[in-house]
C-alpha cells in the first residue's frame, strides 16, 4: 500500500500542456555508402545535439528524428562506434518552421557562421571507417631497397666496384691529381684514427708544399691494381 498515485507533479503537467508550440522535430537521414552499407555495420548509433541532452537514434533505414528542439544554435554530431561523421551547425528559429543547417569544423568559433547552407532534412554520410590497428612491419626485400638509406648504400657499393674501371679510363694527368687528393685524405684519416690529430692536420697542410712524397705514398695502391690486372692477363 505505498503507491503515491497522487504524486502527480503539477509543474510537469503544465509544461507538457503548453510546450509544443516552440519546439521543432529535427529530421534527417544517414545516407548509406560503401564506407557503411547499412545499420548492421553501423550498430546502435545516435545523433546528438551539443552535449547529448537532445538526441535521436538511427533507425534501420538510416533516418533519425531529434524531438522537441527549442530555438537556438546547436552542434550536431553522430556518436557511432566505428564510423566518422561530419559535424554540423544547426540553427533552430522561433518563427520559422525550417532550421538552417551549415557545415561545422570542430574547434572553430561558431560565429561567424559558414556561408554555405546545407539542405534540410539533414543528410549525413559516413566519412570513414575507423582503422584501429597498425600493420605489422615484416621483413620485405622490396621495401628495404626502397629505403633512401639503403639506396645510398647501394650507390656507394656500386661506386666502390666501379672505381677501378673508372680510374683506368681516366686521363693519366687527372688520375695523378686525383690520387694526390686521395692520398691527402687517406693520410688525414689514418692520422685521425691513430689519434695524432696535429700530425694529420700538418700532413694536410704540408701536402700543398711537398708534392714529391705524396705520389710515392700513393703509388703502391695504383701499382697494385695495375699489377694485379696485369698478372691475371
Amino acid at each position: 500500500m505505498r503507491i503515491p498515485l497522487g504524486l502527480l507533479a503539477l509543474a510537469s503537467l503544465l509544461l507538457s500542456c503548453c510546450y509544443p508550440v516552440l519546439a521543432l522535430d529535427l529530421k534527417g537521414r544517414i545516407r548509406w555508402n560503401e564506407v557503411c552499407p547499412g545499420i548492421g555495420d553501423l550498430g546502435q548509433a545516435k545523433v546528438v545535439l551539443d552535449n547529448g541532452k537532445l538526441r535521436g537514434g538511427v533507425t534501420r533505414d538510416g533516418s533519425f528524428v531529434i524531438p522537441d528542439v527549442p530555438a537556438g544554435t546547436y552542434v550536431l554530431s553522430v556518436a557511432a562506434h566505428d564510423h566518422v561523421f561530419d559535424q554540423l551547425r544547426v540553427d533552430v528559429f522561433e518563427t520559422e518552421t525550417l532550421p538552417e543547417v551549415r557545415p561545422y569544423i570542430p574547434g572553430t568559433p561558431l560565429s561567424p557562421a559558414a556561408v554555405v547552407t546545407l539542405p534540410y532534412p539533414i543528410v549525413l554520410a559516413p566519412r570513414q571507417r575507423n582503422d584501429y590497428f597498425v600493420p605489422r612491419q615484416s621483413f620485405n626485400l622490396l621495401a628495404m631497397f626502397q629505403n633512401p638509406m639503403m639506396l645510398l648504400m647501394l650507390g656507394m657499393g656500386g661506386l666502390v666496384v666501379a672505381m677501378p674501371y673508372l680510374m683506368k679510363n681516366m686521363d693519366p694527368a687527372m688520375l695523378q691529381d686525383f690520387q694526390k687528393r686521395q692520398a691527402r685524405i687517406g693520410s688525414l684519416q689514418s692520422s685521425l684514427q691513430s689519434g695524432d690529430l696535429s700530425g694529420g692536420l700538418s700532413a694536410l697542410m704540408d701536402t700543398g708544399e711537398e708534392e714529391k712524397p705524396a705520389p710515392k705514398q700513393t703509388t703502391p695502391a695504383g701499382i697494385k691494381h695495375r699489377s694485379g690486372k696485369g698478372k691475371k692477363r
Binding site: I3, S12, Y19, I39, T59, R60, D68
Partner: peptide
Amino acid sequence: GHLLVERCFHKLEAGRLFE
C-alpha cells in the same frame, strides 16, 4: 536488435514520476 522505429511522445521532464 536493429532499431526500426523511434517515437517520442513527450519530453523526459514532462513525464510523471511514479513509484
